[in-house]
Amino acid sequence: MVKFFYKNQIRTDDRFRFHRGDVPGNLVRSVEREGILLPLIAVAGEQPLLVDGYRRFDLLSEGDSVPVRQMRDEDAAVRAAVELNMLASPYSEMEKAGIVAVVHENAWMPEREILDKLLPRLGLKGCQSVLENCINVVDGLSSVLLNVLMAKKAPLKFAARLAGEFPEEQAALAGFFSGRRFSLSQMIQAYDLLVPIRKRDGATISVIIEKLKETKGDVIDALQRMRFPKTTGIRMKLGALLLPYREKLSFPPDFEGDAFRFSCRLKSPEQAVDCARLLHEISQDSSLFRFLSEYLDND
């Protein structure tokens, strides 16, 4: 049943705030121009308890009147909200985790039903490990890091990994990610690099991040150099040695066996003589020979 209420008649509860991060501009404009068209979902009562529509609700003025679809209890209201949102604008994985965790915590559905119905309805795999990830993300993440991840629509698996970090490490990561204005892929890349560096150096993430402040240039590149010092060293040396030939020869991108071979494309027979000269020059290059001897014990 849909009924109109004034904003100040409606109760709120943060458990149901599944959307975090910035409110989309088109939603703001729509509410400003048209008010709320699609009813909010709430638990019925003289002062209904809002379950779905928090972002639109927050945009209202105190005296605004809004349509509210009233459900008999929290369970029914959550189910209706899930159905509606999955049709209208699907949740991010973090929001889905929030829904699953709140449904589980309040025992609105038996665990089996969460696995059989709710998770698949949300587009998640209906298995125990996914349910546990949802709960861990909500229970284990600090609110600051949770907000950072929600804003970037982080995948559940990544969020679950971060949820296992100690609170001080989470705080350092949240500051690092938001301070550097990282995209989601940069966050994942940075974390993948930070974890092994931390293990190898016996440091904390905040100490590593502190060190990064001294480095210039791209911070992901700096982390790559910290994580892979040997690779970086070899790449730089080889790069410098081969620099004179760069424009003339093609080099494979990795360091597999063929990386020490090179090729050139001949556009005319005359070029063959130039290439032969170049190859002769390379074969006589003592710095290259020393490099290969050092790295391959090449005789």
Binding site: D254, F255, Y295
Partner: peptide, 26 residues
């Protein structure tokens, strides 16, 4: 296991640095 330095190879798998592998295998 993942502490070493790896590079992605032509078959999509990650392997230890080629020079290091060669040196040790020898």
């Amino acid at each position: 296991l993942l502490d070493g330095e790896f590079l992605r190879c032509s078959d999509g798998k990650y392997r230890y640095l080629f020079p290091e592998r060669i040196r040790f295998f020898r």
